[in-house]
Simulated assay, not measured.
Amino acid sequence: MKVTVRYFARYRSLVGKSEEELEVPDGITVRELIEILKERHPVLKNEVFAEDDDLADVNVSRNGRYVRFDEILRDGDIVAIFPPVSGG
């Protein structure tokens, strides 16, 4: 199945693109997709998602809605990855 991954803010700068389409196994979870992204873009592993506990430092949406890391993806999903928002 195919999913589109959109990168925002720091993640866009690190991977050098704003979007890519990936062929992934049917029924993968958001967490499994992140593992694929870490292999595809080692800078994410080194700079952003060093350990599973660090997943709290990333926000993920699927088709415009925040998702849990155990949520299963479907063909055609658009997954956005962006850092936590802070402000005052």
Rank of each mutant, 00 (worst) to 15 (best):
V3H: 11
T4S: 14
V5P: 05
V5S: 09
R6I: 08
Y7C: 07
Y7F: 14
Y7P: 07
F8G: 12
A9I: 05
Y11R: 13
R12P: 08
S13K: 14
S13L: 15
L14R: 08
L14S: 06
L14F: 10
V15D: 05
V15R: 05
V15C: 09
V15S: 10
V15F: 09
G16S: 11
G16K: 12
K17D: 07
S18W: 03
S18E: 15
S18H: 14
E19T: 13
E19Y: 05
E19D: 13
E20W: 06
E20D: 12
E21Y: 03
E21A: 10
E21R: 12
L22K: 10
L22I: 03
L22T: 09
E23Y: 01
V24R: 05
V24H: 05
P25R: 08
P25H: 09
P25D: 03
P25V: 06
P25A: 06
G27L: 02
G27P: 06
I28T: 02
T29A: 02
T29D: 03
T29R: 08
V30L: 04
V30P: 02
V30I: 15
V30E: 07
R31Q: 11
R31C: 00
R31Y: 04
R31F: 02
E32H: 02
E32W: 01
L33R: 01
L33T: 03
I34L: 13
E35V: 01
E35Q: 03
E35W: 01
I36G: 00
L37M: 05
K38L: 00
K38W: 00
E39I: 04
E39V: 04
E39M: 02
E39P: 00
H41M: 01
P42Y: 00
P42A: 00
P42L: 01
P42D: 02
V43P: 03
L44P: 07
K45Q: 08
N46G: 04
N46H: 04
E47G: 06
E47C: 02
E47T: 07
V48L: 09
F49W: 14
A50S: 10
A50M: 06
E51A: 06
E51D: 03
E51N: 09
D52N: 06
D53A: 10
D53N: 02
D53Q: 04
D54S: 13
L55T: 12
L55E: 14
L55F: 13
L55V: 11
D57L: 15
V58M: 15
V58N: 09
V58F: 00
V58S: 14
N59Q: 15
V60R: 04
V60L: 13
S61Y: 13
S61H: 09
S61E: 11
R62H: 02
N63D: 15
Y66R: 11
Y66H: 15
Y66A: 15
Y66D: 11
V67H: 06
V67Q: 11
R68M: 12
R68I: 04
R68D: 13
R68N: 15
F69V: 05
F69W: 09
F69P: 03
D70T: 03
E71I: 02
I72P: 12
L73W: 12
R74C: 03
D75F: 03
D75P: 13
G76F: 04
G76K: 10
G76I: 02
G76W: 03
G76D: 12
D77S: 12
D77E: 08
V79N: 12
A80S: 15
I81W: 04
F82V: 12
P83M: 10
P83F: 09
P84K: 04
P84D: 05
P84V: 07
P84Y: 03
